[in-house]
């Protein structure tokens, strides 16, 4: 089963839920698709293997270039410019569409591979850990997410995907192959508004969903929202200073008997949906 963990914004406890859920499931995989801020590794410490992720970017042969400017005019992302007497490539802006190479009248453009980040893999106890990391200054990590999703297609174990926040294209890429989505929200009017955004996204892609309320209170606004939309509430995590402190230090709280039970319960509820 492939389970995506989503939230409308950062800081609601998405990584907290993903890490602990994956940890209590036997033989599971934890997959971090939040490539701009991959924090799962802070919890699953270990030796990771690294596999580069590459995109194709143009290379200009300045000897044959006639400075006609067609490539720079064509590029809708402004990744090429004529600076004084040379065409320069700004690889961070390049979307690898291949257009410049097509329009060059003198075949002065070829392509080369450029590293934009990596996919790291490790084992933590009996859990398979996969984490995508986007290099600082790169604009989009969708390619890394696509490669991760391709990779986990062959996994036999249950997979928990820690998604990027929001409802942008990288979230869409992350939930493509999932069977179930967990939406994590805090009971504030901000939390509710952001939950509504991701809820809308999961509906467009026709996903089965459930809600986890972090820092829950009795009959709070997230609870009310879930009831009104008939969405299952999978778990309510009450605010707990000790739990917050352990988590902020990068510890897996479900290692403690005290907290393990609530995540066991969550795992059981979700895995039951497999049948």
């Amino acid at each position: 089963m492939k389970i995506a963990v989503l939230s409308g914004k950062g800081g609601t406890g998405k990584t907290f839920v993903s890490v602990n859920l994956a940890y209590v499931m036997a033989n599971s995989a934890y997959v971090d698709c939040d490539v701009e801020e991959p924090n799962g590794e802070l919890f699953f410490k270990g030796n990771y293997t690294e596999e580069p992720v590459e995109v194709e970017i143009p290379v200009i042969d300045h000897n044959s270039c006639i400075l006609c400017g067609k490539c720079s005019d064509f590029c809708r992302f402004n990744a090429l410019a004529i600076i004084i007497d040379k065409v320069r490539v700004f690889s961070q802006l390049c979307h690898s569409c291949g257009g410049c190479k097509l329009v060059c009248p003198v075949e002065a453009i070829t392509e080369k591979k450029k590293n934009i980040g990596m996919i790291k893999e490790s084992y933590y106890e009996n859990h398979h850990i996969v984490s995508g990391v986007l290099n600082i200054k790169e604009e989009t990590g969708v390619k890394i997410i696509d490669e991760i999703i391709e990779k986990i297609k062959t996994f036999n174990e249950d997979v928990v995907i820690d998604c990027p926040p929001g409802n942008g294209c990288s979230v869409m890429a992350s939930i493509k192959e999932t069977d179930y989505c967990i939406l994590v929200a805090e009971p504030t009017i901000f939390g509710l508004h952001n939950l509504e955004m991701v809820y809308e996204l999961t509906q467009v892609f026709d996903k089965k969903i459930g809600i986890v309320i972090n820092k829950a209170e009795s009959n709070d606004i997230i609870n009310q929202f879930a009831m009104s939309k008939n969405i299952e509430i999978l778990m309510k995590i009450p605010f707990d200073r000790e739990m917050g402190r352990l988590n902020s230090m990068g510890e897996i709280v479900s290692k403690k008997i005290k907290y393990k039970a609530i995540f066991d319960n969550l795992a059981e509820k979700i895995l039951r949906k497999k049948q």
């Binding site: 402004n78 410019a81 600076i83 802006l93 604009e139």
Partner: peptide
């Protein structure tokens, strides 16, 4: 000219200044 372009205006501006 590049005011309404979502990406990479800095580069086009530098190109203009140098031109």
């Amino acid at each position: 000219k590049h005011l309404d372009n979502p990406h990479g205006v800095g580069i086009k501006t530098a190109e203009f200044i140098l031109n």
